[in-house]
């Protein structure tokens, strides 16, 4: 007798979130990206529908990415100093489906750019590329609370994904995203209880659950990867079992974490046995991303085009295409 696989029946599905809006819908994007909608755990196609594939977003900064290690910066070359050219390469050459624009330059410790400068920059990005946008602040709470509402307004109607909000700082940015029709990133510190609490707080302000994406805060391979994985898994299991306050897609900032790992940065003469530094970083980023795909990641924010290529192929295989 053939052995039959035990199939789990879930009560709930992950919310579908759409990023971007075309001219017909009041925006100016050339296409939109939909994610989420999973009816079961990652890639168990026999158990339930997995209507949308995980999407990779390329990271673009408003300011030169000076601390990027050579293995990463060498691939972009001079465009790392020119955000619009950088965005253009990601979209045209690397075929990015999503761009994740980080307003690092606004941070008081970086360039302390003014809100007006950043608003102008965002407007130019909006006009120069047609892919749906993720916009992430500089990480300084006070500055982001001034900055992101203005960016939200500039991008009104574009149905972006804007972030991040945290349990201690969510009201101002949520109100703006709500008013301007954007989705929001809810960030929690590798803590499923806080992730759930934050979703409740945001939804209490009137934000539909279908416009929230969870940033569970991840660590790279060797730097807390398993911890983040288990939190995502627990959250996803609860969501599928019926917990609507956790039924959101995940965004994982894989590039930022992977390229911080010493394995991705250390020069060859220090650790010759580790192999070529140019390959190490790529592999570190690709393997970290591939791991989080198995934990349920819906958006992977990545940096190196070669790593993206590897993970893209992995996604296609896992989605059975």
């Amino acid at each position: 007798m053939a052995m039959e696989l035990v199939k789990e029946k879930w009560l709930n599905a992950i919310n579908k979130v759409t990023i971007g809006s075309t001219a017909e819908e009041g925006g100016s994007r050339t296409k939109v990206v939909t994610l989420g909608g999973e009816e079961t755990l990652p890639f168990l196609h026999a158990e339930g529908a997995l209507p949308y594939k995980p999407v990779i977003a390329y990271e673009v900064w408003d300011t030169p990415a000076r601390d990027w290690p050579e293995g990463l910066s060498s691939v972009y070359g001079k465009v790392l100093n020119e955000p619009f050219a950088w965005a253009k390469i990601c979209v045209e050459e690397y075929k990015a489906e999503l761009l994740c624009v980080r307003l690092v330059g606004a941070h008081p410790d970086v360039e302390n750019r003014s809100v007006e400068e950043e608003a102008d920059f965002i407007e130019k990005i909006r006009k120069s590329c047609g892919v749906p946008l993720i916009v992430v602040g500089c990480g300084d709470t006070t500055k982001d609370n001034a900055l992101l509402p203005v960016c939200s307004q500039v991008l009104k109607g574009e149905h972006c994904l804007i972030g991040s909000v945290t349990q201690d700082n969510y009201k101002t940015i949520t109100a703006s995203c709500l008013a301007d029709g954007h989705n929001i990133i809810a960030e929690s510190p590798i803590d499923v209880n806080i992730a759930k609490q934050l979703n409740i707080l945001i939804s209490d302000m009137g934000m539909p659950l279908e416009r929230i994406v969870i940033d569970p805060t991840v660590g790279a391979l060797g730097y807390g990867f398993e911890y983040a994985y288990s939190i995502m898994e627990r959250s996803r299991l609860a969501a599928l079992a019926g917990d609507k306050m956790l039924a959101m897609p995940f965004i994982c900032f894989v590039g930022q974490e992977s390229w911080r790992a010493k394995e991705a940065r250390t020069a060859e003469d220090q650790h010759p046995e580790w192999g070529a530094v140019l390959e190490r970083g790529i592999i570190w980023e690709a393997v970290t991303a591939a791991g989080f795909l198995q934990a349920g990641a819906d958006i992977l924010v990545m940096r190196h085009p070669k790593a993206v290529e590897i993970v893209q192929k992995n996604i296609e295989e896992l989605m059975g295409k």
């Binding site: 209880n193 759930k196 609490q197 409740i200 627990r234 959250s235 609860a238 917990d243 609507k244 306050m245």
Partner: peptide
Amino acid sequence: KQIYCDSYLDAYRKR
């Protein structure tokens, strides 16, 4: 049977 959060009573009622 459900995941804790500070507003777990509300969360249950919003199912």
